[in-house]
Design a protein around this nucleic acid. Structure first.
Length: 503
RNA sequence: GACUCGGUAGCUCAGCCGGUAGAGCAACGGCCUUUUAAGCCGUGGGUCCUGGGUUCAAAUCCCAGCCGGGUCACCA
């Protein structure tokens, strides 16, 4: 049994005193509410009678008791509003217990209460609720952090300890309104994206999270075991191969917001479970997908922030379409002066060494090019920029470029030097796909940890039935919302980021 | 995984040239019928992350560990 703190003991005593007064601290009845703090503050005009009979519910967040009258703050899901509680108004009879005992002594900050009354403006000009009826809706037994904001808007004693904020997100959400805004924007991003896809006529689908073969990416999976089948199973690392099966099945466009799981390191931009949105559209190619992507992101940025512009750390970025398109070859020329066109593996390795990049003999041509791009180019793209035409060996699920068989029809979208989207003209040649999987398996067996370790033969069978030409796009939803809310840590945009267990 | 910074009251923090703990808010008692970081008077509250060590004496110095932040490494 954990020892209670002084304040927790006091609150439990208050709870008992409330019970002794015959008041249920956790009533079952619904409490009818007919307005919100925000609605009243936005719309109430002094003298108006429109808000003469309002009913609100929320948490008591501050009490300023002045003898027989008090001010307090009530916080509902929309914000805070001041309430005015007068002894003789809420206790018109002889018995003043509701004011003197319950309100003044036994109600604590954090308690849920319901109030009925009328709206008025105080001497100092603050829109407030003149309370005529006060009901305890739920008692709080632990003290919340007290965060105060002064007249200049400065926040005092902000609840900032990241460990406490992430472990007790519920507390963070109660006391830090800007945190609630981040998550509202996150939801707005999802709904605006969903709307964009639905308007285009594409189908939102659900595919297996628990998979026998973790395909569609190369990453270490979380492994579990199915008891009655007695087989190992994996939490998905991607949903790509399932969405393509649905394109084989005849849908024109399918998309899914996919919780993926990767058993790898954690840092400011990686959480073991994260969300990717993937969409596949039949009869399209990656050029079409680039236009679709920039229109999508422009639409989402507007929906989330009301503007296509966004601030991220020291950078100002603009999601307004169209975005620049730069081939990987040109990007490398731009930032190193080196042209990879027509060069063999040894020449590229030498050039990379000359740029001060660590290389080893195991790196193939594609990997070397990717290293050069990652080291010298990637970080320079601040405004959204499509990097196109990636080397073939890095992209086992992507169609070979129509004009150059060493490249693939692939693009990544870079923002502030980070990748937020990845798209292909999808490989739909089953024979080529089988060979690429087998090549990945060989690389994996040779010790390349980035290569796929499984061949999904059912997926190959699906391709053998025929998949139309298709373009697919994946967007890192967590990264995108980080950009749209100016948060450099993924933990700030996940309600419950992964933490080591307490104790 | 490496390096680095941090862990003191419910919260935000000070104390860290070793002498056994402080502030503001919160809490408790009192006053106050339009306050708003309300105010005034008074009071209580701490395994100083854990475990070792040095010392007459450790929140403070040393070692190990735990938890968190940051940087780097890793990352389709």
């Amino acid at each position: 049994m954990v020892k209670l703190t002084e304040q927790e003991i006091v609150r439990r005593e208050n709870l008992q005193k409330i019970l002794d007064l015959g008041i249920n601290p956790y009533p079952a009845y619904l409490y009818n509410v007919n307005s919100t703090a925000k609605e009243i503050k936005d719309n109430y005009k002094e003298g108006s009678e429109d808000y003469d009979d309002i009913s609100l519910a929320g948490r008591l967040m501050m009490k300023r008791v002045m003898g027989k009258a008090s001010f307090a703050e009530l916080q509902d899901s929309t914000g805070k509003i001041q309430i005015y509680v007068n002894r003789d108004i809420i206790c018109p009879e002889e018995n003043k217990d509701l004011y003197n005992k319950v309100f003044k002594k036994l109600l604590d900050i954090g308690d849920f209460i319901g109030v009925k009354g009328h709206v008025f403006t105080t001497k100092v000009g603050e829109t407030s609720i003149h309370v005529s009826e006060l009901t305890l809706l739920s008692k709080s037994l632990k003290p919340l952090p007290i965060v105060k904001t002064d007249a200049e808007g400065n926040i005092h004693d902000a609840f900032t300890d990241p460990e406490l904020r992430y472990r007790q997100r519920y507390v963070d959400l109660v006391v830090n309104p800007e945190v609630r805004e981040i998550f509202k924007k996150r939801t707005k991003l999802y709904s605006s994206m969903r709307q964009f896809f639905d308007d285009a006529g594409y189908l939102e689908v659900e595919t297996p999270i628990l998979q026998a073969i973790p395909g569609g990416a190369a990453a270490k999976p979380f492994i579990t075991h199915h008891n009655s089948l007695d087989i190992p199973m994996y939490l998905r690392i991607a949903n790509e191969l399932y969405l393509k099966r649905l394109i084989v099945g005849g849908f024109d466009g399918v998309y899914e917001f996919s919780k993926n799981f990767r058993n790898e390191g954690m840092d400011r931009t990686h959480n073991p479970e994260f969300t990717a949105m993937e969409i596949y559209v039949a009869y399209k190619d990656y050029n079409w997908m680039m236009e679709f992507t920039e229109k999508l992101l422009e639409h989402c940025a507007m929906a989330v922030n009301g503007t296509t512009q966004a601030t991220f750390g020291e950078h100002e970025i603009d999601f307004k379409a169209p975005y620049k398109r730069v081939t990987m070859r040109q990007a490398i020329i731009d930032f190193t002066g080196f042209d990879i066109e027509g060069k063999n593996e040894a020449e590229i390795r030498t050039a990379a060494k000359g740029m001060g990049i660590e290389v080893d003999e195991k790196m193939g041509k594609g990997k070397l090019i990717d290293e050069i791009f990652g080291e010298k180019c990637e970080g320079n793209y601040i405004d959204p920029t499509f990097i196109i035409d990636y080397p073939k060996e890095m992209s086992p699920l992507c169609k070979v470029h129509r004009k150059n068989n060493e490249l693939t029809e692939r693009f990544e979208l870079m923002v502030c030097g980070k990748e937020i989207a990845n798209a292909y003209s999808e490989l739909n040649d089953p024979i080529d796909q089988k060979e690429r999987f087998e090549e990945q398996l060989r690389l994996s067996e040779k010790g390349d940890e980035e290569a796929g370790q499984f061949i999904d033969y059912d997926f190959l069978r699906a391709l053998e039935y025929g998949m139309p030409p298709t373009s697919g796009l994946g967007i890192g939803m967590d990264r995108l919302i980080m950009f749209l809310t100016n948060n450099e840590s993924i933990q700030e945009v996940l309600f419950f980021p992964q933490m080591k267990p307490e104790n």
